[in-house]
Write a protein that binds this DNA or RNA. Structure first.
Lengths: 135, 135
DNA sequence: TTAAATCCTAGTAATCCTATAGGGTTATTA
DNA sequence: TAATAACCCTATAGGATTACTAGGATTTAA
């Protein structure tokens, strides 16, 4: 299951992308429209800004805005930043690999082949979809 | 990420399936071979028995055994019992549907189309794979 | 100068996860 | 009858994660 953090982040990005004007979108406006706690959303968008998805402008008339075109923002990259690994077990994760402590040998692990199949099918979907597809 | 419970359950099922003989497999033997706490595994296998995947035999020479052929045990069914929903958000889950409290209208929810795609691609893999594929 | 905004660090309550421990019950085999 | 092994319940406990909350610092436009 996705965390609320990721879910809210995706919804916020979609909201920002839908605003046609070039002026920054205040976080408060997003929070209100999407039913998200303002402070919580603030921290989520901070992460997205630090990861290079968003820019921001302080002060009156400020807010956040997309740095790239919606069609160039892949879902897989957003989800990796907010949620972490795509894979269901750490030992088959491409970006967050970790050894399983109960597994003596990954090559003979009974479940790894299945887990790789699930990972790859999910990756295919998340790589194909961009923010433009959410609008 | 899969919980340890699910992971251990899958590994245990694979272990049982690999035993060729018709005699029941003691839980202790599985626990030892797969590096799983005996008591924890006991509770996991109890769940699998109550869900109709396993039979058991008490007393000396007892243990657990598969009720169906490995090729007839689909991964999707095991995972639903041990882990719960396959979907990443409750509002697109087929078997564990729940309304999202932040979403006023599911039909216009920006992320549901993406979530359905991920769900379906995962389902395809998990329906195709059976316990026989883990052996 | 004031109001509106983001920036940033901490903290926190609640829940879930992953067991661990114990102990009694029941069934089966040798 | 003794040993074995699953069954079944309760309780607990540390750690991690989640979903926020608080409060102040900083920046900017009008």
């Amino acid at each position: 299951m996705l965390s609320k953090k990721t879910k809210y982040g995706l919804k916020a990005l979609a909201y920002i992308a839908r605003q046609e004007c070039d002026t920054p979108v205040p976080i408060g406006a997003i929070a209100e429209s999407e039913n998200i706690s303002h402070k919580f959303l603030e921290s989520i968008l901070l992460t997205l800004r630090k990861s290079g998805f968003l820019g921001s402008k302080k002060g009156k008339g400020g807010g956040v805005y997309l740095i790239k075109e919606p069609k160039d923002i892949r879902m897989v990259d957003v989800i990796r930043v907010l949620e972490g690994p795509i894979a269901l077990v750490p030992c088959v994760s491409l970006n967050f690999y970790e050894k399983c402590d109960d597994c003596p040998d990954e090559k003979t692990c009974t479940i790894s082949r299945l887990m790789i199949q699930v990972r790859d099918s999910t990756l295919t979907v998340l790589r194909k979809n961009t923010l433009a597809d959410l609008m």
